[in-house]
Amino acid sequence: MRRWGGLACALAVCGGAVAGCGAGQRGDAAAAAAEAFVSALREGDGAAACAALATETAQGLAASEGAPCEEAIGALGLPDAAPSAVDVWSDRAQVRTRDDVLFLAEFEDGWKVVAAGCRPQGERPYECEVGA
């Protein structure tokens, strides 16, 4: 039973490590990806904004707007304030700006925005202009 005890302790420590450790660096990376997205919006650079989106999100936007992502994204008038808070859990992140909430996911080529222009709906999922 001592062997099991050691494993249980290790698991408790690992549980904490998985939940907490590494969140700082990964949070910075997620915030940087969100910053790349909103700064592209601020500068009116549709191509750069779409490059910061996850592939499926960009494709979904183009399909729903009936226009290339680069053109469609600027027409939405999405909020473009800088990130002020980031919350990372596993390969998902939520980034808050002064007037928006963005959701990101980590892919092989780094963090990408999967949803932006999001408004809370109580207990229900956020309603997002992009990536809903």
Partner: peptide, 20 residues
């Protein structure tokens, strides 16, 4: 305790994937 810590982490990742 480990279940609660790891479970929160896994559940929060799922919640973010579902835009919550």
């Amino acid at each position: 305790l480990a279940q609660s810590i790891a479970g929160r982490s896994a559940n929060n990742a799922e919640r973010l994937a579902q835009l919550q």
